[in-house]
Design a protein around this nucleic acid. Structure first.
Ligand code: SF4
Ligand code: SF4
Lengths: 161, 161
DNA sequence: ATCATTATGGACCTATGATATCCATTATAA
DNA sequence: TTATAATGGATATCATAGGTCCATAATGAT
């Protein structure tokens, strides 16, 4: 249970793009030099980010990438979901087991019409809750958050002198 | 980014053990019949749970498994960590990149003696925060939680009649 | 219009880890 | 002593992550 390296790369690439917003179109060469990743691999990742509308890309001379939206509107959650996919953290794999009938289906049957038919037990509910927690947290941080914190600390350091 | 099936199996097995606490020593045969999983695979998982002191095992006739501790003291987090391992959700993979120097090391250098030398940037901090959130949530639920909720709903259903 | 440049996407490869099985051995209680 | 049940090593299979290469398409500069 770990985030993939691709997610790491994607976040770092976006931060570099955000830091360089003045001059448009950062090429893949500059990106992979900054991140220390191979050009061919990073371009796959950038392509994904483009398909999901997080960056814009323009080919040709002086082409490259730029953020498609303000850095403050690109959340960690979004980036992670683009790269990792959107499967659930926990997926029931025993839906026809005796135990599932015991914990989920019989229970659902007892509850008659109200709250009907979701046929999920507490295990699933707890895990889904964990996922919601995680998502809520990751939605609160954006690419801009990282830049802000960096420059705030910079100012703080300057004020001390 | 998903929990493995093994984690699924482990949780379900522990719930069955907890439900059967009256009679000790549930054999692997009963467990895998209840869960609908192969005997050979589940035994690996049970072995891990034993090595980490979550269940006790006794071989031989009428042997089997039982919880090593009260179900209320076995948290989701613990089970997950035993099966999934304890690596961090996010591990920096570019610690010698130009960008890391920019975001983390230079910053650390600026801060002189106070708050010294951790050399981590905000990305890492956000991700570690996400992990803490997740862990805190998963620590609040135990195997007993699932049983309690199941029986409470059962009583509720009875009272309605 | 041509050209150098840059992103794109398909094909491909390798390494790693999850999932799964089999069996010989060990430990235990009856 | 013996039948039984857990253990751990070896092995197989499969999916995914991680990574490379190249032919093609798109673009701005000339
Ligand atoms: S609903 Fe509950 S019992 Fe059924 S498969 Fe999912 S986790 Fe297991
Ligand atoms: S500390 Fe920050 S910049 Fe450095 S590798 Fe980790 S996430 Fe990237």
């Amino acid at each position: 249970m770990q985030f993939s390296k691709s997610t790491d790369y994607a976040l770092h690439a976006l931060i570099h793009l955000a830091q360089s917003e003045r001059r448009n179109n950062i090429g893949i060469k500059e990106l992979c030099a900054t991140l220390g990743v191979s050009e061919s691999y990073l371009s796959k990742i950038m392509s994904k980010l483009r398909q999901d509308g997080i960056v814009r890309a323009v080919p040709g001379v002086n082409g490259g990438y730029e953020l498609a939206r303000p850095a403050g509107e690109i959340t960690f959650l979004e980036v992670i979901q683009v790269i990792e996919g959107r499967q659930q953290l926990f997926e029931c794999s025993n839906l026809d087991s005796q135990q599932h009938r015991l914990l989920a289906e019989d229970r659902a049957a007892r509850q008659d019409q109200d709250c009907q038919g979701q046929s999920e037990c507490l295990v699933k509910k707890v895990m889904d809750g964990a996922e919601r927690q995680l998502h809520q947290y990751l939605r609160e941080y954006t690419i801009q958050s990282v830049l802000d914190a960096a420059s705030k600390e910079c100012n703080h350091a300057l004020n001390k002198k």
